[in-house]
Design a protein around this nucleic acid. Structure first.
Length: 547
RNA sequence: GGUCCGUUGGUGAAGCGGUUAACACAUAGCCCUCUCAAGGCUACAUUCAUGGGUUCAAAUCCCAUACGGAUCACCA
């Protein structure tokens, strides 16, 4: 019996060779320096902010270099599959406009290096598995889960590191004949990789973020094919897929750093050149006094759906993640406020080595700036799109009063320093409700009168104003002059300065008077430009409100 | 426990042997101002986890310690 016989017994139907596959998936024809990246989520139903950061990094690196960005679904763990989880992934990419160049959706494959769903690549993995067995770098293992667990227990007790290595790698020493017999007899088995390293020896490894680090060689015979589904484990799928798909840069979480020796060992076994690795830092969260990885269970902001529901512009979320990912991004953004983020030259070296907290204040600030830079129609569209799913009632209102809404959104917008008061779309309604009769009528009204509280005084100021002074056709300057005239008539200073210099001469100043009008009309003491509000509301509606 | 990574203000961080230790967010104060959102100005680390070295000179180089994190699955 030879390795070849064993390989044929295990994979009788595999006739393809690695060479065949290399022909089928040739070297990509890309310009010098183009990066091929991939986001490889497992469909467990969530998109986490950490995954999202990797996604954004993958995307910029590919796009900025004229490369290719792929989406590969890692569903080798059939037991953990969640219904609809794949949609969550596609929706997030759509939502943020991070469309993959190569992917597979509803059975349709886009790209020449597919399939892009691991469960559909079984045969491909088997070709590589078969080869490994033939060259004696992989072997079937008949140890049960119970057995290996028991070994791990012993190792723990003895203070040794756990794992299937050295003298604990029982099935490694099985003769080919024995293995052959066992399989013939229908015994269940997994396939393990035959490691080649010595744990006490180190090798140098160059990570694009960490730089050179020393890692122990791999001496663990890890499982590379599972018993029940015959699908590969992550480690093996990574090697095969990223080789076949010609991935140049593997962006993944820092938690993978310690499995690098295993992956390198496998790449070497095939004689393949490993890709460059970028092990990104974790996004952390302060929990009381301790620090931990941000958690989708405990932290609402860990899930991407949070940002969508709140209505943060996608650009804002991308920018804040980019700010964490590359420290010089912010500076670049200041100099290029309107460029797509893919113009930024991303450098893996500049990713912070320590984990970072996700700063919501920073997000708010970035978001506020982005919204302030939108033009009125764009803001309207975005707001409407958001409201359509998260506030249907508001969406209807906004749709029926499109031009009116746009004019509200446009207050203090078309000017050199546009107003910055909307942090996200869910913010808008609470800031403009008094502009819509439909909302105004049902809203609880707390009149926030300030310095002038006397009802009689308020009534007579307001009534006089609308009877005698207010004219919808006034331009802003005359409008304000009239407010000053009104103030004077009631014994208030025309200018704040004037009042401050001689407070005893006046009852108050213009500010007090305009506040009264503002509050009477909107209930709020703090609003955007009063002139605009009155103009947009229109005299008729105002008078109706005043009763 | 083994292995690996990390530690600069409230947060993100710049810094690469000689700087007043950038910048942004947050916070506070002032100015501007009809209110607010902004905008402008100012303040905010005698110190870079700690302790030792090397050096004329260290946040920057070396060593140790502490603390935090990751990983050690037929999960990814």
């Amino acid at each position: 019996m030879t390795n070849k016989d064993l390989a044929n017994l295990i994979f009788p139907d595999i006739d393809l060779t690695i060479e065949d596959l290399e022909k089928k998936y040739p070297k990509r024809d890309l310009k010098e320096g183009a990066k091929v990246t991939r986001i490889a989520p497992s469909p467990t139903g969530f998109m986490h902010i950490g995954n999202f950061m990797q996604l954004v990094i993958d995307y910029v690196m590919a796009k900025n270099s004229g490369g290719v960005f792929m989406l590969r679904i890692e569903d080798t763990d059939q037991a953990r599959l969640v219904d609809g989880a794949i949609d969550v992934i596609y929706n997030t990419l759509d939502q943020y406009g991070l469309i993959a160049d190569e992917y597979e959706k509803d059975g349709k494959i886009v790209g020449n290096y597919g399939p892009y769903v691991q469960s559909e690549r079984k045969e491909l993995y088997h070709v590589f598995l078969k080869h490994l067995i033939e060259i004696g770098r992989a072997y079937p293992c008949f140890c049960s889960k119970e057995e290996t667990d028991a070994v791990a227990e012993i190792q723990k007790k003895e203070g040794l590191r756990t794992g299937y290595y050295g003298r604990y790698a029982k099935c490694r020493n099985l003769s080919i004949d024995e293995a052959y017999e066992k399989i013939k007899n229908g015994e269940e088995y997994v396939i393990r990789f035959k490691s080649s390293g010595n744990f006490n020896k180190k090798f140098k490894f160059d990570d694009a973020k960490f730089g050179t680090i020393e890692l122990p060689e791999n001496d663990e015979d890890i499982v590379i094919m599972k018993a029940s589904t015959k699908l590969p484990t992550y480690h093996f799928a990574h090697v095969v897929d990223d080789y076949l798909m010609k991935t140049t840069h593997v962006v993944r979480g820092e938690e993978w750093l310690s499995s690098v020796p295993k992956h390198i060992d496998m790449f070497n076994a095939f004689g393949f050149k490993p890709p460059k690795y970028v092990h990104t830092s974790l996004i952390l969260k302060k929990d009381g006094d301790s620090v931990r990885k941000i958690s989708k269970r405990k932290d609402p902001e860990a899930l991407m759906t949070f940002y969508v529901e709140k209505g943060y512009p996608s650009k804002a979320v991308i920018d804040s993640v980019m700010t964490i990912a590359n420290s010089n991004y912010e500076e670049w953004r200041t100099g290029h406020p309107d460029n797509p983020f893919t113009d930024f030259e991303f450098s893996p070296k500049k990713i912070s080595k320590s984990g970072a907290f996700f700063d919501m204040d920073k997000l708010d600030n970035i978001s506020k700036n982005i919204i302030s830079r939108m033009n009125k129609d764009e803001l309207y569209e975005e707001l409407y799109k958001w409201a359509e799913t998260y506030d249907k009632e508001f969406a209807k209102l906004v749709k029926e009063n499109k031009d009116y809404t746009i004019s509200i959104l446009n207050i203090e917008r078309e000017q050199k320093k546009p107003r910055k008061d909307y942090v996200c779309y869910s913010d808008v309604k609470e800031k403009v409700w008094y502009m819509f009769d439909e909302l105004y009528e049902n809203h609880e009204k707390v009149y926030e009168f300030q310095n002038i509280k006397d009802e009689k005084e308020i009534d007579s100021i307001v009534n006089t104003y609308f009877d005698k002074y207010y004219d919808e056709n006034d331009d802003k300057e005359t409008w304000f002059e009239k407010i000053k005239d009104l103030s004077e008539e009631f014994g208030y200073a025309r200018e704040v300065k004037e009042y401050k210099e001689n407070p005893e001469k006046y009852k108050g100043h213009v500010g007090d008077v305009s506040t009264v009008i503002r509050v009477r009309v909107t209930t709020r003491s703090m609003t955007p430009d009063l002139y605009e509000i009155l103009r947009i509301l229109g005299k008729e509606r105002i008078l109706k409100r005043l009763g």
